[in-house]
């Protein structure tokens, strides 16, 4: 390779690696701010990496799985409250894991159901209760026909966020 090309190659390669390193460091420094939501266990014991805890009265997003059997609907309004547990695969719930209660007054998305991934936006109040102003559904990356989902459920006792019907 002739020296001029070699020089250009070196310059461009070093510029790219420089930009990549800068971007990497910036993203690493901002990582907890880029996270869209807190998980229920992080509300209890602080962020995984930094241990930063959410303050009471802080606006935050909470993401988790709707604990089966925890949904309570008001009889004559849209008010609803439910508990969220950490998202994990495969889906499982235990009684002693940390949960956060979400209170919401409004229309829930179509995908809302027990065992579904949910992201709620609201203010944290005492006792790990969140007054949500917005509830969004998070679905997973698995797609399958209904028959397959039903047979998978019979075999393995569920898979995917929609397992706990």
């Amino acid at each position: 390779m002739n020296p001029r090309r070699k020089k250009r190659l070196t310059i461009i390669t070093s510029v790219i690696s420089g930009v990549a390193i800068v971007a990497g460091l910036v993203l690493y420094a901002l990582s907890q701010n880029i996270d869209l939501f807190y998980m229920p266990s992080e509300v209890h014991s602080g962020k995984q990496d930094t241990g930063v805890k959410a303050q009471v009265g802080q606006r935050l997003r909470i993401g988790g799985l709707v604990v089966p059997g925890s949904i309570e609907r008001d009889a004559d309004s849209l008010k609803v409250s439910f508990k969220l547990a950490d998202m994990k695969t495969p889906i499982s719930f235990s009684d002693d894991e940390p949960t956060v209660t979400v209170k919401y007054d409004g229309i829930l998305p179509d995908l809302f159901r027990e065992g579904q991934g949910i992201v709620a936006n609201g203010t944290l109040t005492n006792g790990n209760i969140i007054n949500a102003s917005e509830v969004l559904a998070k679905h997973d990356e698995n797609y399958m026909p209904k028959e397959l989902a039903d047979s998978a459920k019979e075999k393995h006792g569920g898979g995917g966020y929609g397992s706990g019907k």
């Binding site: 993203l27 869209l36 969004l136």
Partner: peptide, 24 residues
């Protein structure tokens, strides 16, 4: 993968577990 997002993970490049049924 790096951050938690509302957008779900990658379906197409996920190997191993059936992320999508073959007929889809």
């Amino acid at each position: 993968e790096w951050w938690n997002t509302l957008h779900q993970g990658a379906t197409v490049t996920k190997f191993g577990r059936p992320a999508m049924a073959p007929e889809m």
